[in-house]
Design a protein around this nucleic acid. Sequence first.
DNA 1: TAAACGATGCCCT
DNA 2: GGGCATCGTTTAC
Length: 206
Amino acid sequence: MSAGAPPVPTDASFYDRPVLEVAPDLVGCVLRYRGVAGRIVETEAYHASEPACHAYVGLTPRTEVLHGPPGVFYVYRSYGVHALLNTVVEPDGVGAAVLVRALEPLSGLQAMRTRRGLDRVQDLCSGPGKLTQALGIGLDLNATSVGERIEILPRPTGAEEPRVVTAERIGITRAVELPWRFCDAGSRCVSRPLPPAMRRGARAAA
DNA sequence: TAAACGATGCCCT
DNA sequence: GGGCATCGTTTAC
């Protein structure tokens, strides 16, 4: 890409950057798979240098993709039940990824409701395991490239810019102090509520 | 071969 | 707001 141009998530070079740049940049982008789409409202950064990251312990068969080139999806099973969706970032071999934690449903709502067995929009994709279920994303999509089957599209032109706030990551027991969670403060679809001070100005309506 | 541990979600109070 | 189900992956013996 040319110098000075804003990075776009349809470009492979978008992911060949520091994870702390890519993770907030993904907030507001659109994730689409088989006609079902949602706006990314929450991400988390993981890096091999800190113990909460799967790459921290080194290369295992399960984390092979995580140690590979950027711009590839790393999908793994959590708690024996849920599929969690990550995008590998940083140069080949570093072992860093962005976890997509929550979406705001945009299209294909009926398919999402059917897969989730729920009606409420704010419950469809408000969690890393929920969104993969809602979109029908399974472990078979591990190691596929961005744009190959799952697409990540730039923030729609003219759309309101997301107000990205940082917070501590969710559901981990190590390196809990790192503020590597990135949320759109204006969205009701985040996986866990933000502190009131961060929601100021948001269109509330609980 | 066996045991422990989760980047969670759901149902209960 | 808190506790528990669930089972693949990892690590230990």
